[in-house]
């Protein structure tokens, strides 16, 4: 209700690891800050019938050290240590990262890769938005004003699923210049259903359906399929150039990281 009635610019603050720098440098001057840190119900990781449920205010460091995540979401467990640095992970939250929707951040890409469902609460009650529809652009999500992200539901992760996660950043903990999250449900040696999600290369994390189709029904070490998949990455992505990397370099990186992620999934790394 506070958000609905707020005059001027109201901002929700979760861990504050993205918002605080903007406040400190006066790049954001909200008239109202709504702090979610004291709402205990928004924090924690639990089992559900369908999989896992993570509260939006769960700290990244708690996800990193969670036995449940390690057991039931190995891709996320593997990728979380890549997020920033420990003191940032100690304070930063998954919900804050997803709401901020930085296109180079790991959590948005991971949610897209594992088919997460975002649970949003607003004045009209709760609604569920799949990750594929949640990220709508640079720092933009499907969240309406007066809504907040309260939980994330992660579907069951099959035991036979193999995964690879690769990112390239200038230094440890930096935002990725490019990254790939990959998993494949194996039918013997053959790649069945799979996911290829690229991040750092567009205004939001992107699922590369065309690349998935190429990889499917081949072994993960199929060299011809990999060449085609690399070309497809090059064709499908239209990243922007910025200070840290040109568009061309980002494309080259994404293709290379795809290969490494697939090979890691296939135990070839």
């Amino acid at each position: 209700m506070i958000l609905q009635n707020a005059q001027g610019d109201a901002r929700i603050i979760a861990g504050g690891q993205s918002l605080m720098p903007m406040l400190n440098f006066r790049l954001a001057t909200p008239t109202l800050l709504v702090d979610l840190n004291r709402i205990a119900a928004l924090s924690g990781i639990g089992m559900t019938d369908e999989g896992l449920r993570i509260g939006a205010m769960t700290r990244t460091r708690d996800i990193e050290t969670s036995a449940l995540i390690a057991q039931h979401q190995p891709l996320i467990a593997h990728a979380v240590p890549h997020i920033a640095h420990l003191p940032i992970r100690s304070r930063g939250t998954i919900g804050g990262s997803l709401s901020h929707a930085d296109p180079a951040a790991e959590f948005p890409a991971l949610m897209l890769a594992v088919d997460a469902q975002m649970v949003l609460h607003g004045p009209q009650g709760a609604r569920v938005v799949p990750a594929g529809e949640y990220f709508q652009g640079l720092f933009e999500t499907a969240t309406k004003s007066a809504e907040i992200l309260t939980h994330i539901d992660l579907p069951h992760w099959p035991e036979a699923r193999r995964f690879g996660f690769q990112e390239y950043s200038r230094r440890r903990g930096d935002f990725a210049l490019a990254g790939i999250a990959f998993w494949a449900d194996m039918d013997g040696d053959i790649c069945g259903e799979c996911r290829v999600v690229a991040f750092g290369v567009s205004d939001r994390p992107v699922r590369l359906h065309g690349v998935e189709q190429i990889l499917q029904s081949h072994p993960l070490n199929d060299a011809d399929a990999m060449l085609q998949a690399r070309d497809a990455v090059d064709d499908l992505l239209e990243p922007d150039s910025d200070l840290q990397a040109s568009a061309e370099y980002r494309r080259m990186l994404a293709a290379e990281l795809l290969q490494r992620a697939v090979h890691a999934a296939g135990g070839m790394a």
Binding site: F25, R170, R171, R172, G173, L243, Q244
Partner: peptide
């Protein structure tokens, strides 16, 4: 264009 530690990179212990 490089007026913060996000854009002006310094070496850290892992580099």
């Amino acid at each position: 264009l490089t007026a913060s530690f996000a854009d002006y990179l310094l070496p850290t212990s892992t580099e």
